[in-house]
Design a protein around this nucleic acid. Structure first.
Length: 684
RNA sequence: GCGGGCAUAGCUGAGUUGGAUACAGCGGCGGACUUCUAAUCCGCAGAUCGGGGGUUCGAGUCCCUCUGCCCGCACCA
């Protein structure tokens, strides 16, 4: 293989020239992070130019806002200007003059710019070689920093009450959590995904009351969670109307003179309904006790399994179902309380509003301005949700004796075993997590803060610091917030169905009968699921999003389909290359990458190099939208390359190089899609 | 009232240790399909970054303050 670029720093020509520059920066490593290698050279240059470490620490290397400013930029001259009492521009000028291109492999030249920036320009041939070689060598691990330190992380997400179907807000939670899981795993962390099942709460009880006491004579043709949800909404509505009914009744009883016959009838019917409500309440309490003893587990499982079908359809998977009933049954809660009782901020007031309850004082105020406590155990002896959550977190962090094992629950469609907590079962992983991330809606921030306060109060300050609440904003409808209780929420299943239906219609329109229906349906499913997932992650998690089906189903612009479409184009090129064009693999493999000098090619290569830092930033700041943004940008640059650079019709040498580039872009974009959970399709 | 969050183009958003002329998508207007398949690409218009003050060589970003919207302040979860 030869090269006609005649540059001394071209890796191909270097074989011919074989000059022996300084070893530390010239060794060809096929690094999994070529951008970091470039930055390392940049820093080496700055050190050689006499920049002290203190200035390097306070300065930063970044990608400049415009291509004309080169590949990387340093603002170190601004930091130096203060102590040297010179203008940043003069310092940048001075530093740039010390640059000798022969001493570097990836750095081509350094220029002062603007008010005092130092801009680094690439030695394109070497950089191209490193990037494409690096991606190929790293394979599916590309994106992981070579120096990444694996942490043990537990991520809890979803945690939907097992009582009705997911609404679109639950889907946001699950997708955010799932993408974060995939991000951290690619970044190198060892992640266990937990889904907390609150099977002993009031919500589950109401659905069970519906299923047991008021089943519909004919099982309708719908998912079991939807069926349970409809019964739940009826019962919750009836229970929720108690206050209004009582007020109305009081009104009638206190104004008997106003009318003669009608109000009496109304009062009677009100009393009848209130009696009915009282019966329902009694039943709910009975059922809650039944739930704690496992009496209705088959029904809870039936609802949960239906919910999990929604998760699986979205490509969301878990490692462990953590059952609240197990937490109670195993006496873990008791262990946690024992720890807490030793803290001065945990008390059992003998009088006042908290008389008889066990509470923790967190320094918060009530609406009336009085000190407010969080109840851990009610005066009737039953633990509260927050109390149980605290116990759950002590268990998650291995801070209380382990009383729960793992048993297999099911095999997930991805082939992995889904485990379940159990008072029996195999021991869980023996090492405690170093980090716990909870994906929980923003309106539960106080409750999450209370869990941290409680950990500190129990003497686990370090654990409290390792507990992160990723608060995400609610998904609201065009006409306000959704209410699960009132049944006004849009179900996740219906949104996925709609997205897939629209996609199917458009695929069929486009294909006009040339493609088998099975394949069109598979494509539509991938497009629809991709659209829903992408919609959920493209926004900053902490913002509320206004949900609109039309937005999910709009397949133009910044959407999953745009990214999938770019991949379809790449697959088409690669398929044709080895197919109808019959280009041998050896020819492609032997490509001379120095030929990739077109502006669009260089932009693509630079963007490929950016991937490890995008993954690292997303993992560090828990901002999965960065991955969506990265994928969209890469797809955009590819679309422009596609317009400007013909691959199959290029001269044979260039064609081979471009085919390698396309295959590499395909790999990285597919990698980003695998984090986003956006399915890759090869045809459209 | 107390605590938390948010405010960027007509709309929805990005801007994550302060950096160069604030970046996209949609919508609007105008262009490009005999092609490696146009669900694509190109161009134009559109922003006193909620108001005011401060720190800094430099502020959408940090501090103070005001305004507006959302959430929480249950022996619910």
């Amino acid at each position: 293989m030869s090269c006609d670029c005649n540059a001394t720093r071209c890796p191909w020509c270097a074989l011919l020239y074989s000059s022996a520059p300084t070893p530390d920066v010239t060794r060809r490593t096929m690094s999994a992070d070529p951008l970091a290698d470039l930055d390392a050279e940049f820093l080496t240059f700055l050190r050689r130019a006499g920049v002290p470490e203190s200035a390097l620490e306070s300065a930063q290397l970044s990608t400049p806002p415009q291509r004309e400013f080169g590949a990387r930029s340093s603002n170190v001259a601004f930091a130096l200007a203060r102590e040297r009492r010179t203008s940043p521009r003069a310092i940048a000028q001075e530093l740039a003059e010390t640059f000798h291109p022969d001493e570097y492999r990836l750095l081509g030249r350094i220029e002062p710019a603007g008010a005092g920036f130092l801009n680094a320009f690439l030695n394109d041939a070497a950089f191209t070689q490193d990037v494409i070689g690096g991606v190929q060598a790293a394979g599916a691990h590309y994106g992981r920093r070579p120096d990444a330190v694996a942490r043990r992380v537990v991520i809890e997400h979803t945690s939907v009450n097992p009582n009705k179907e997911w609404h679109i807000g639950h889907a946001r939670n699950a997708v955010l959590g799932d993408v974060l899981v995939r991000t951290l795993r690619l970044a190198g962390d060892e992640v266990e995904v937990q889904n907390y099942i609150d099977d002993t709460g009031l919500q589950a009880a109401m659905s069970i009351v519906g299923l047991v006491d008021f089943p519909e004579p004919e099982q309708p043709d719908e998912k079991f969670d939807h069926y349970a949800g409809r019964l739940y909404v009826k019962i919750a509505g009836e229970l929720g109307s108690e206050k209004t009914l009582k007020e109305r009744l009081a009104e009638l009883e206190h104004a008997p003179a106003l009318s003669s016959s009608e109000p009496v009838n109304e009062a009677d019917s009100l009393r009848a309904r209130l009696e009915n409500i009282a019966r329902l309440q009694k039943r709910a309490v009975q059922v809650m006790h039944g739930l704690e003893s496992g009496e209705y587990q088959h029904l809870v499982r039936q609802i949960l399994d239906a919910q999990l079908l929604t998760a699986y359809r979205l490509g969301v998977f878990y490692n462990l179902l953590a059952w609240e009933s197990d937490l109670v049954e195993s006496h873990l809660f008791g262990d946690a309380i024992q720890r807490l009782e030793q803290s001065p901020s945990v008390t059992r007031p003998a009088e006042g509003r908290y008389a008889g309850a066990l509470v923790i004082w967190t320094g918060q105020q009530s609406e009336e301005g009085e000190p407010r406590a969080e109840v851990l155990i009610r005066s009737n002896g039953l633990p509260t949700y927050v109390g149980k959550d605290i116990a759950y977190h002590m268990w998650k962090f291995h801070l209380v004796p382990n009383r729960l094992g793992y048993v297999p629950y099911a095999e997930e469609p991805n082939g992995e075993t889904l485990w379940s907590t159990s008072v029996h079962g195999e021991p869980r992983p023996s090492l405690a997590p170093q980090l716990i991330i909870n994906i929980i809606a923003a309106h539960q921030s106080q409750a999450q803060a209370t869990v941290k306060d409680a950990l500190r109060a129990a003497g686990f300050a370090e654990a409290a610091g390792d507990l992160v609440h990723l608060a995400y904003g609610l998904v609201k409808g065009e006409f306000g917030h959704f209410s699960g209780r009132a049944g006004t929420a849009v179900s996740a299943d219906s949104v996925i169905d709609e997205a897939v239906r629209v996609a199917y219609d458009r695929v069929r329109e486009r294909q006009s009968g040339e493609m088998a229906d099975v394949e069109m349906r598979a494509i539509a499913e991938a497009v629809g699921v991709g659209a829903v997932r992408y919609f959920m992650v493209q926004y900053n998690p902490q913002r509320e999003i206004t949900f609109n089906v039309a937005d999910v189903v709009s397949y133009d612009g910044n959407t999953a389909l745009y990214i999938q479409y770019a991949l379809v184009r790449m697959h088409a090129i690669l398929r044709r290359a080895t197919g109808e064009r019959g280009i041998p693999q050896e020819e492609i493999a032997a490509a001379n990458l120095c030929l990739l000098q077109h502006e669009q090619e260089r932009r693509l290569i630079y963007h490929l190099a950016l991937y490890p830092s995008a993954v690292a930033d997303a993992a560090r700041t828990l901002s999965v939208n960065l991955i969506a943004e990265y994928a969209f940008d890469l797809a955009t640059i590819f679309s422009q390359f596609y317009r400007d650079c013909s691959v199959l019709d290029a001269a044979p040498e260039l064609r081979a190089a471009r085919l390698q580039l396309v295959a590499t872009v395909r790999d990285v974009l597919a990698n980003a899609c695998s984090i986003l959970g956006v399915p890759v399709i090869e045809r459209l």
